[in-house]
Amino acid sequence: MKYVDDFRNGELARKIAARIHAAAVPGRRYRLMEFCGGHTHAIARYGLTALLPPGIELIHGPGCPVCVLPVARIDSAIELALEHRVTLCTYGDLLRVPASRRMSLYKARAAGADVRLVYSSADALALARAMPQQQVVFVGIGFETTTPPTAVALLAAQAERLDNFSVFSNHVLTPAAMRHLLADGDANLDGFIGPSHVSTIIGTAPYRAIAHDYRKPVVVTGFEPLDVLQAVLMLVTQINEGRADTENQFTRAVTEVGNLKAQAIVAQTFELRDEFEWRGLGLVPGSALAIRAPFARWDAEKRFQLSANPVADVKACQCGQILRGRCKPTDCKVFGTACTPATPLGACMVSSEGACAAHYQYARFNDVDASVATGSTH
């Protein structure tokens, strides 16, 4: 683990932080959005905000794939399990996300539905092979990182003519969401800490047009604390110089073009949707993937005639506003009281990549320390 430890060196972190303090212009605000739940957790876990000058604000974005999935899509997954009686395979984070009528996939399983936690699309394929008389549906969720394995599953199902297997596609696209946030403008962002795992697939090239069109720098960044601090320094430098470039801090894993083989199999099996609903962002044009016509036999939406009508989140939950960068977890009145990891009201508290879960697990202790130091009760 020495290689990882090199990127968690406290002395180097303080040196980079000192350079950030020296670079930050006094009185100037730098609002930087991290577009990845892994970055959100790294920032909270290592207390990186405490190393930054007060003018630099790290804003949580819609980088949690479970969090951005709207209630209506979870309702459709529950419909598959309860009404169509399929064996529904999904990643663990999705099980406890609240849906409408106080339901969740976890509660559907308790009511007798066959809902199974899997670690990959390959697990779902194996179940379909083992149970040829039972319809098995894999809930494909996530950004560009998790789409290629779903594509591989579709290709395998076609090759094997595995007619009892299908995919409920909820795969979404990062650049489209970034454009949507910038076009909306209400988050008032100055730059992006670009996602790392996503960028291993798509490369850095897709961000260049965004940086150019909106004059906002993007720095693709690794997950470790030194990665994030270096990215902040790179962004501050760009902003001070009036530049809006796409830079790659995560050169040990990310290239300009990304993984061309992964891109090819995704293009073979998926096509762009005209629009897709995101929690907090609403309908985002060209932001998600549908299964192509040659694979329609393995498309759960077509096979089971699913339709999703928009459903509002719980009024007390501010998850949607957090995903837009409009507020922080602690701005939500139910954070840490009615809404905890044990009793979540929203997806941001459920998912392992959610901003509320990160703040509850790590950063809330910093809040307590700060309130004691200042004598504040808030």
Rank of each mutant, 00 (worst) to 15 (best):
R29W: 00
D123F: 05
R19T: 13
D313K: 04
V25S: 02
A187G: 05
A17P: 10
D331W: 10
I193N: 10
G320N: 05
D6L: 15
G10H: 06
R129W: 00
A126T: 12
G346E: 01
I78Y: 09
P149M: 02
V25L: 10
N9M: 13
N240A: 02
W278S: 03
L82P: 04
P285G: 10
P225W: 00
M349Q: 03
K2A: 15
F250A: 05
V372Y: 00
Y106K: 13
A44G: 05
F7P: 12
L95C: 02
S169H: 04
V86D: 02
Y362V: 03
H359E: 14
P344I: 07
L51W: 01
I202Y: 02
N240H: 07
C327D: 04
D331N: 12
G112D: 11
V118W: 05
A373N: 14
F143K: 04
R243S: 08
G325Q: 07
V236Y: 12
D163S: 09
M349L: 09
L182T: 00
T246V: 13
L323Q: 13
P294A: 06
R19L: 14
Y30P: 01
T337N: 15
A355W: 09
K333T: 06
V4N: 06
L162F: 01
C319M: 09
Q134G: 04
Q361S: 13
E247L: 15
Q305I: 03
D5T: 03
N240M: 01
S121T: 08
D367P: 12
Q361L: 11
P344R: 10
V314M: 07
T40S: 12
F143Y: 06
K261T: 15
K15S: 05
Q268H: 08
I56R: 08
V137R: 03
L229T: 05
L94A: 10
A157Q: 08
Q268P: 13
P148E: 06
S287A: 15
S287M: 08
A110M: 14
Y207M: 03
S351H: 04
A42E: 03
I239E: 07
S196H: 13
L345C: 00
S166Q: 08
V25C: 07
G336A: 09
W298G: 06
M178Q: 12
P54T: 06
H359Y: 13
T200I: 05
C332V: 02
N240E: 03
W278V: 01
S287T: 04
S371C: 00
E275P: 08
D75Q: 02
D114Q: 06
H84G: 00
A126V: 10
F250E: 06
S376E: 15
A156H: 14
V219E: 12
V311I: 04
V68Q: 11
D313E: 04
L69G: 00
I59L: 10
H180L: 01
V86P: 11
A126N: 10
L323N: 11
T145W: 07
P341V: 13
I201M: 14
L323P: 06
I322N: 11
A205D: 06
I202T: 07
C332P: 00
A17H: 12
Y91V: 08
F168Y: 15
A108C: 10
N248L: 13
A157K: 03
R29F: 04
A113M: 08
F168S: 01
Y360H: 14
M33G: 11
W278R: 07
A357T: 02
V218G: 12
G346K: 02
V118K: 06
C317G: 04
G47N: 07
